[in-house]
Amino acid sequence: MSDALKRTPLADVHVAAGARMVDFGGWDMPVNYGSQIEEHHAVRRAAGIFDVSHMLNVDVEGPDATAFLRLLVANDVSRLTSPGRALYSCMLNPQGGVIDDLIIYFFTSTQWRLVVNAGTADKDIAWMQRVATSKKFDVKVTPRRDLAMVAVQGPQAREKVWAARPAWRASTESLIPFSAAILPDAMVARTGYTGEDGFEIVVPADQVAKLWHDLVAQSVQPCGLGARDTLRLEAGMNLYGQDMDELIHPNQAGLTWTVSLKDTDRRFIGRDAIEQFADPKVFIGLQLLERGVMRAHMAVRCAQGMGEVTSGTMSPTLGYSIGFARLPQGVTVGDTVEIDIRGKWVPARVCKLPFVRNGQPVQHG
């Protein structure tokens, strides 16, 4: 391992468990603990735990916190009025490109928490500080590297968490999706990146190893980045840097639903560019019809022209390759297109997302 790689508070736990560690955006992270396929199925059938402490919790506090966030992100945080409620949004540049996708939690009108991606954390903080300073917002942006985060996902995930932490049950049992319980020693959110039910749990960094061990003792399967990627792909969830980036508008990545244009007076950063942009591509799913595996950047040949795979993998749940693609306007669900896989054009069916919902395949015809 390079000395330059960052390590989460759970890094030694992963190594002791025999995880295969890889460089993931400058972080030393587990890709699997033996069988990526078994880890994937554990999440779909029971419960798995992921170290997501490389992602950054950011506290935004101050009298202007709400106004600052209404300018900063494309979704409208004023919709959140109950403590713990959350929404998913994109933070855009003035050209409408995605600086990052993130989850925002409401604590009070002057206290919020953002969870941003690991690979974009430094530029995210710099951008937030720049916006706050240039617009003279009375707001403080605080990166919280003193916190750690794990995701416990799967149909049995919540019961396993309550078995490991019985005191949390009363505060978290009635949580609806995209809401969190703000506890003295933790933030427990009913969110995730797998398409399954479960919690994402934020605790002080010095408490996360015990939480991890206690959950593993409840037969929760440790899972690495490999299973996380196949799970999110099946669930139709984008990966920053692959399905979108600073050159891609939200509507080019299937994220129009994360942009709120209802309040015409809310001129969030990037709004003008989005309103003026005519998108020549559609973002949609692909199911490979023959043997092979789709990967990012593979060319797609359609009757309407050329497109590109943005993410692709072999689906452990479905047994065939699935992917996301940006394709020419006019391509519709049910069409057959062709993917260039190592010089061979392989047929694929265009389909809606997601591919798997609540552990079950979604029928695409």
Rank of each mutant, 00 (worst) to 15 (best):
H297E: 15
D12R: 13
V73C: 15
A325I: 03
P280M: 05
C302V: 01
R190N: 13
F50L: 15
V43G: 07
V220D: 11
V139D: 08
V152W: 03
R291E: 15
V22L: 12
R271I: 06
E234M: 11
S171R: 14
P328L: 09
M244C: 14
A46L: 09
H297S: 15
Q221W: 09
F50K: 01
G97P: 08
E200K: 02
S82L: 01
T8A: 09
R271C: 07
M314D: 10
D279Q: 05
I248T: 15
S171C: 10
A47N: 04
L215W: 04
R271E: 07
G84Y: 00
C302F: 02
L289G: 02
A209G: 01
I37E: 13
P177W: 12
K262C: 00
G307V: 04
D185I: 08
P155T: 11
L5D: 10
A65F: 12
G48I: 05
V350C: 11
A296F: 01
A180D: 02
G270L: 12
I49Y: 01
A148W: 06
Q207D: 15
D243Y: 04
E159C: 05
E290K: 14
M237Y: 12
P155F: 13
I201C: 10
N93D: 13
G241L: 03
I274G: 01
G343K: 03
M244L: 15
L114W: 03
P143W: 08
L233H: 00
G84C: 03
H249E: 06
V362I: 15
P30D: 10
T120N: 15
V161A: 09
V188W: 01
W345I: 08
V13I: 09
Q304C: 00
D340C: 04
V216Y: 03
F50T: 05
K123F: 12
L80A: 00
F268G: 10
H14Y: 04
T172P: 01
I322P: 07
V13E: 08
S82M: 02
D245Y: 01
Q95C: 06
D12H: 11
D3P: 10
L5M: 13
A11I: 11
L261E: 09
D122C: 01
G192M: 11
N32G: 00
A303K: 14
A163I: 03
G224I: 03
G195H: 06
G62M: 12
A65Y: 07
R20N: 10
R20H: 14
L239Q: 14
G224S: 08
G285V: 10
G198P: 04
T310V: 10
I176L: 12
V139K: 05
S2A: 13
E173R: 08
A164M: 08
L80D: 00
L231A: 07
L72G: 11
L286P: 03
Q287H: 08
V43A: 09
R7K: 15
R158Y: 02
T194F: 10
L102V: 02
A186L: 07
A4D: 14
P222W: 05
E159S: 14
W27S: 02
G343I: 06
A118N: 09
A325S: 12
A227R: 02
T317H: 09
R79T: 02
R145L: 12
N117G: 14
P184R: 12
P166A: 04
P250I: 05
V52A: 09
I341S: 01
V216Q: 03
M128N: 02
P316M: 11
A118F: 05
K123A: 12
